[in-house]
C-alpha cells in the first residue's frame, strides 16, 4: 500500500523500460500514475496501450515531454502531437489489431509464448511473422507481451491488491495487471481485506504489487453523446 502515485512508482522507473498502461480511449486510464510517470522523468519508454491519449491528457502528457520512444497500440487517431512526432519520425509505432493486442498481453501474463490467430493473416500485420495453413485456413503466429511495469486503474481495491473494475472502464486493465513484472494499481476506493466479495473480484491480488487511492479524477469523456427526453 502506498500514499500516492509518486510513492507507488518510487524505484520502479528507468530509461528505456517497457510500460503497459490500461484503458480504452480515456476510459479506465490510470490518470494519477501517468502523471507520476511523467514526473519521474524516465525517457525512451516503450508504451503498450490500446490508444495514446489526447493532447494534454492521459498518455498525451508523456508525448508532450517526449518521454515515449515507441507505442504499441491498435488505434491512435485522437492525438495531434502523436501525429506530428510520428510524421517527423521522432516516434516509433507498432499497430496491433485490438483483439491480437489484448490476447498478446493475456498470453504474456499467462506464460504462453505465442498463439496462431486468423486475425491479420494475409495482411500487412502478418509481414515478417510465421503463417501456417490449418484445415485450409491461414493463421499468423503472434507472441505474448510482458512489460517491466504495468500501470492499471480499478474502481475498488483492497490492501491485498484485489481489484474490481467498473463497467467499460475494465477493458485492458485486467490483462495488463497480469503481464507486468511489477504492477501498480490506482483505485477510486481503497478498502480493508474482507470488504470486497471474493466471488466478485476481477483481478486477484497476486498480480498487484503496489496499490494506492487515486485523487482528483477528471474522467474526461471523448464523445459526449445524449438523446432528447420525449414529452
Amino acid at each position: 500500500m502506498c500514499a500516492d502515485a509518486a510513492a507507488a512508482l518510487a524505484g520502479l522507473t528507468r530509461d528505456g523500460m517497457t510500460v503497459m498502461s490500461g484503458g480504452f480511449g480515456l476510459c479506465g486510464i490510470p490518470e494519477n500514475l501517468i502523471v507520476a510517470l511523467r514526473d519521474s522523468g524516465a525517457r525512451n519508454l516503450t508504451v503498450i496501450s490500446n490508444n495514446a491519449g489526447v493532447d494534454g491528457f492521459g498518455l498525451g502528457l508523456l508525448l508532450e515531454t517526449r518521454q515515449i520512444r515507441k507505442m504499441v497500440s491498435s488505434y491512435v487517431g485522437e492525438n495531434r502531437e502523436f501525429e506530428r512526432q510520428y510524421l517527423a519520425k521522432e516516434l516509433e509505432l507498432e499497430f496491433n489489431p485490438q483483439g491480437t493486442l489484448a490476447e498478446r498481453i493475456r498470453a504474456g501474463g499467462a506464460g504462453i509464448y505465442g498463439f496462431y490467430t486468423r486475425t491479420g493473416a494475409g495482411t500487412v500485420v502478418a509481414e515478417g511473422k510465421e503463417q501456417r495453413t490449418v484445415n485450409g485456413e491461414l493463421f499468423v503466429l503472434e507472441t505474448g507481451l510482458t512489460a517491466d511495469l504495468s500501470i492499471v486503474k480499478a474502481w475498488k481495491g483492497d490492501t491485498e491488491g484485489n481489484l474490481v473494475y467498473r463497467k467499460t472502464a475494465r477493458n485492458f486493465n485486467p490483462m495488463m495487471a497480469t503481464a507486468g513484472r511489477v504492477t501498480v494499481a490506482e483505485v477510486e476506493e481503497l478498502v480493508e481485506p474482507g470488504t470486497l466479495d471474493p466471488d466478485q473480484i476481477h483481478t486477484p491480488g497476486i498480480f498487484v504489487q503496489r496499490i494506492f487511492r487515486g485523487t482528483n479524477y477528471q474522467k474526461r469523456i471523448e464523445q459526449r453523446t445524449v438523446r432528447k427526453r420525449v414529452g
Binding site: 480515456l26 479506465g28 485522437e78 489484448a102 467499460t168 475494465r170 485492458f172 485486467p174
Partner: peptide, 24 residues
Amino acid sequence: DPDLINAGKQTITELPTSSFFSSS
C-alpha cells in the same frame, strides 16, 4: 457516465440484460 462508453468512445447506457467484461 464516463465509465460507460462504446467502441466509438460515445457515452451510452446499460440495459437490465447487459454484461461487462475485459478486452480479451
